[in-house]
Design a protein around this nucleic acid. Structure first.
Length: 645
RNA sequence: GCCGGAGUAGCUCAGGGGUAGAGCAAUUCCCUCGUAAGGAAUAGGCCAGGGGUUCGAAUCCCCUCUCCGGCUCCA
């Protein structure tokens, strides 16, 4: 039966039965056929050599397409496994998928890979590539696959996970073979290994089989592959760039904070400039909370262990909490890992009426969580941090409006700091397998969350079953300098605490109602927020955030007096200014101000004193040789320093 | 917590069984300068910590701590 294919330009062509992707690509053009690595029919990617069984939308996939890179990386992974088996006979391979920017493969080997081993693997990969071995697709029944991979624990486990009779494209299991290497794989793959233009082995690490820490730990090797050697170089260059943006490097360099060894891992001290940055952010947080109708509360860092027992944290969160302190008459206390119970106690302090709702309580609450020693990561993952936390209690009728209100706030917060859709991602997580609460609560809450996202025009990823056991949520994620995603803000329902603490309000008609509870953090943690903020701006903050906004540089020491007067004037206009009175050359002082990424530099010398002018230079801009009247410069800087309204 | 890598001056790094090195930063002095490093001198180290091996350890071995890259987990 002929297959009808619709090309991207809209034309529809009928092809004879058994036509392959490469046939069609050739019929379009020889150059396209040469560049092709796979074809796309409908949503499905197919090997070039595979007969096209069904008609539909058709496109030739090349390495210029994201799908093409995916195929390239998948094939590179197979080559890597082949190379490892060649270099280290007796090793066993597990799985090897493509990932963002590259691929990995997991192995069981008799010793972990050394840097020299990785070098050998890369060399062997390159020789496999130069041999241009064809990739061959092998269709198997479940039974055949079990026989072929008999004794291969990982593969047998995967095949056994395939339901008997489960069929994809008329086949139960497929594998790909190139020369002596064969692995289970859905494909598609490049036509041959020679089609890999640029590949590099990057690093190795331990990784648990099936991502389960109770199971065997394997050795993983990461690699990266690109459409051209130039793309590979650009990628490596991008990684170096990102390293320069790393907040753990920039923080101490800009004298914002440090992690003294004397304190212990994951604990930060803020230096004056970092403290100032943090103050600006806290001030903005408080003013926005006020505008969005939140009330401020304060709760202690230390609370009776019984409270954590009631809240359930000792049941499911104990391993993240610091050990018990025994005080007074055998009374047990613990440091808070979360602010919620404190806010619940504020709610409970007196009887509440529906007229009190919604009640929005907020606090910059510092919490301490015991993070495993291997996971702390600068400000992005610390053991002590401050959340811009809030808990809102409302009725079911108010739920939709409240969720939208909180989401709007969270999005406005991120926008104010310059985080746009290129780095921000929203995610809606729904009911997991194990959960508390009524089905109706989950349904209505998930619906309201989705509606709020829709109302505000937010594109989001749906994460089914990823919600907390106590409620569904919307999370805001931001990508850091090297593309890692960090959870920032969250709007999260809680069906658990209102029950555990028996929260009530008097509803009309003299009946008692149970409030809905919404956890919401806008920034998430101030530490993490500042960490990604530093990386986002590479330390060159917008003026309203910069700890030092203006540096005044006198040309010679006879200009110090005027320079200090200029500084005073700037300070009077509300700007954070510093004068560099060191006995250095102008060039050196400029360099220091720019290295510290101060947004504005004012140079003052003989010519300026008489005419009441300054030389103005903004970060990231070339020198402006024009003398600017001081009043004009001040007005410009004040305008630039205005916080987002 | 697990797998690997690494810790030498405030920072970036050299050295490597036989008296601890450089550049930048710091301090002092000279220079008085118009937009990314002016010059000189001085000071600075329990070579992460603890145990071993050795006539002798920063160097070799073991343990611990901390950091880095991953895994697991997470704001």
């Amino acid at each position: 039966m002929p297959v009808e294919l619709r090309y991207p330009d809209g034309t529809v062509v009928s092809h004879p039965d058994g036509v392959t992707g490469i046939d069609v690509a050739r019929s379009i053009g020889p150059r396209l056929a040469e560049a092709a690595v796979a074809v796309k029919v409908g949503e499905k990617l197919l090997d070039l050599s595979r007969p096209i069984a069904q008609g539909g939308d058709f496109a030739v996939v090349t390495l210029a397409d994201p799908e093409g890179l995916h195929v390239l990386r998948h094939s590179s992974a197979h080559v890597m496994a082949q190379a490892v088996l060649g270099e280290f006979p007796g090793s066993t391979f597990a799985i090897g998928p493509p990932i963002e920017d590259g691929f990995y493969y997991d192995f069981r080997v008799d010793h972990p890979f050394t840097p020299e081993d990785l070098e050998r693997v890369e060399q062997r990969m390159k020789s496999i590539i130069s041999e241009d071995q064809p990739f061959e697709r092998v269709a198997l029944t479940r039974q055949q696959a079990l026989e072929l991979f008999a004794g291969h624990q990982f593969k047998v486990e995967i095949i056994e996970g395939v339901e008997p009779g489960e069929v994809v494209d008329g086949e139960e299991v497929t594998a790909y073979r190139n020369l002596g290497f064969i692995d289970l794989c859905r494909g598609p793959h490049l036509p041959s290994t020679g089609r890999i233009p640029a590949v590099k082995v990057t690093r190795s690490s331990g990784a648990y089989w099936r991502g389960d820490e109770t199971r065997e730990q394997l050795q993983r090797i990461y690699g990266t592959a690109w459409a051209t050697p130039g793309d590979l170089d650009a990628y490596l260059h991008r990684l170096e760039e990102a390293e320069r943006r790393d907040h753990r490097r920039l923080g101490p360099e800009l004298d914002l904070f440090s992690f003294p060894q004397a304190l212990g891992p994951g604990l930060v001290v803020w230096h004056p400039k970092g403290g100032l940055l943090r103050k600006v952010i806290e001030d903005h947080s408080r003013s926005l909370h006020e505008r969005f109708g939140f009330e401020f509360v304060h709760t202690p860092h230390l609370m009776k262990a019984d409270l954590w027992r009631t809240s359930g944290h000792l049941g499911y969160y104990a391993e993240n909490m610091y050990p018990v302190m025994v005080l007074d008459n055998d009374q047990e206390y613990q440091v808070k890992p979360m602010n919620c119970p404190g806010h619940v106690l504020v709610y409970q302090a007196r009887s509440r009426s529906y007229r009190d709702l919604p009640m929005r309580l907020s606090e910059l609450g510092t919490v301490y969580r015991y993070e495993k020693s291997g996971v702390v990561h600068g400000l992005l993952r610390a053991r002590g941090f401050t959340q811009d936390d809030s808990h809102t209690f409302c009725t079911e009728d108010q739920l939709g409006a409240e969720i939208r209100h909180h989401l709007e706030f969270t999005l406005a917060w991120h926008r104010d700091f310059g985080f746009d859709e290129t780095v921000v991602e929203a995610e809606l997580s729904t009911r997991p397998d194990k959960s508390v609460g009524e089905q109706s609560q989950w349904e209505i809450s998930e619906k309201r969350l989705a509606e709020a996202l829709g109302d505000l025009g937010v594109t989001y990823r749906l994460a089914p079953g990823e919600g907390a056991f106590y409620g569904p949520k919307i999370d805001i994620h931001i990508k850091d300098a090297i593309g890692r995603r960090w959870q920032m803000g969250t709007v999260q329902l809680d069906f658990n605490l209102p029950d555990l603490f028996d929260l009530e309000y008097a509803a009309p008609g003299n009946v008692m109602g149970r409030p809905y509870m919404i956890h919401c953090a806008k920034a998430g943690s101030l530490e993490r927020f500042i960490g990604v903020l530093i990386e986002h701006y590479a330390g060159a903050f917008p003026m309203w955030l910069a700890p030092v906004q203006v540096t005044v540089i006198p040309v010679a020491d006879r200009h110090h007096e005027y320079a200090l007067a200029v500084e005073e004037g700037l300070a009077g206009a509300g700007l954070r200014a510093e004068t560099d009175t060191s006995l250095e050359t102008v060039g050196d002082k400029i360099r220091r101000a720019l290295t510290q990424k101060h947004p504005a530099v004012l140079v003052v010398g003989d010519a300026d004193i008489e005419s009441k002018t300054v030389g103005l230079r903004l970060y990231g801009e070339e020198r402006d040789t024009r003398a600017v009247p001081l009043s004009e410069a001040t007005a410009r800087l004040v305008a630039m320093a205005r916080p987002p309204s």
